[in-house]
Amino acid sequence: MADRLVCRECHRVLETDDGEQCPACGSTSVTEDWAGYVIIAHPEESRIAEEMDVTEPGKYALKVR
């Protein structure tokens, strides 16, 4: 999992077919330097999603460097 890219802007874990552009926010600022992740299924009901400012379901990195 550590070889996956993560968006530095919204912390979304990118799938291999996403390339190097985030499908969620459109940013091309991505990194392999991240740790931990959370899967958010229902952001409208999630306190974690609220804290992370996440509005779309998906996988998100907890720490991005």
Results as ranks from 00 to 15, higher is better:
Met1Trp: 09
Met1Gly: 14
Ala2Phe: 12
Ala2Gln: 14
Ala2Ser: 15
Asp3Pro: 00
Arg4Phe: 08
Arg4Glu: 08
Arg4Gly: 05
Val6Leu: 03
Val6Trp: 02
Val6Gln: 05
Cys7Pro: 05
Cys7Lys: 06
Arg8Glu: 13
Arg8Gln: 11
Arg8Ala: 07
Cys10Gly: 06
Cys10Lys: 00
Cys10Gln: 03
His11Phe: 14
His11Gln: 12
Arg12Glu: 07
Val13His: 05
Val13Pro: 02
Leu14Tyr: 11
Thr16Gly: 06
Asp17Val: 11
Asp17Gln: 10
Asp17Pro: 02
Asp18Trp: 10
Gly19Asn: 07
Gly19Lys: 09
Gly19Ile: 06
Gly19Trp: 08
Glu20Tyr: 06
Glu20Ala: 08
Glu20Thr: 13
Glu20Lys: 13
Cys22Leu: 05
Cys22Lys: 02
Pro23Gly: 06
Pro23Ile: 05
Pro23Val: 04
Ala24Cys: 15
Ala24Trp: 15
Cys25Val: 09
Cys25Gly: 05
Cys25Ile: 11
Gly26Trp: 04
Ser27Thr: 00
Ser27Pro: 05
Thr28Val: 06
Ser29Lys: 00
Val30Asn: 04
Glu32Trp: 03
Glu32Thr: 15
Asp33Lys: 13
Asp33Thr: 08
Asp33Val: 07
Trp34Glu: 03
Trp34Ile: 05
Trp34Pro: 03
Trp34Arg: 05
Trp34His: 07
Ala35Arg: 13
Ala35Trp: 12
Ala35Asn: 08
Tyr37Ile: 03
Tyr37Cys: 06
Ile39Pro: 04
Ile40Asn: 04
Ile40Tyr: 01
Ile40Ser: 06
Ala41Gln: 15
Ala41Ser: 14
His42Lys: 13
His42Trp: 11
Pro43Thr: 13
Glu45Asn: 09
Glu45Ala: 14
Glu45Lys: 15
Glu45Ile: 03
Glu45Trp: 10
Ile48Ser: 13
Ile48Arg: 10
Ile48Met: 14
Ile48Ala: 14
Ile48Asp: 12
Glu50Ile: 03
Glu50Pro: 02
Glu51Met: 11
Glu51Asp: 11
Asp53Lys: 11
Val54Cys: 01
Val54Gln: 02
Val54Asn: 03
Val54Gly: 00
Thr55Ala: 12
Thr55Cys: 02
Thr55Leu: 08
Glu56Gly: 04
Glu56Trp: 04
Glu56His: 11
Gly58Asp: 06
Gly58Ser: 09
Gly58Asn: 07
Lys59Leu: 12
Ala61Lys: 04
Leu62Val: 10
Lys63Pro: 04
Val64Ala: 00
Arg65His: 06
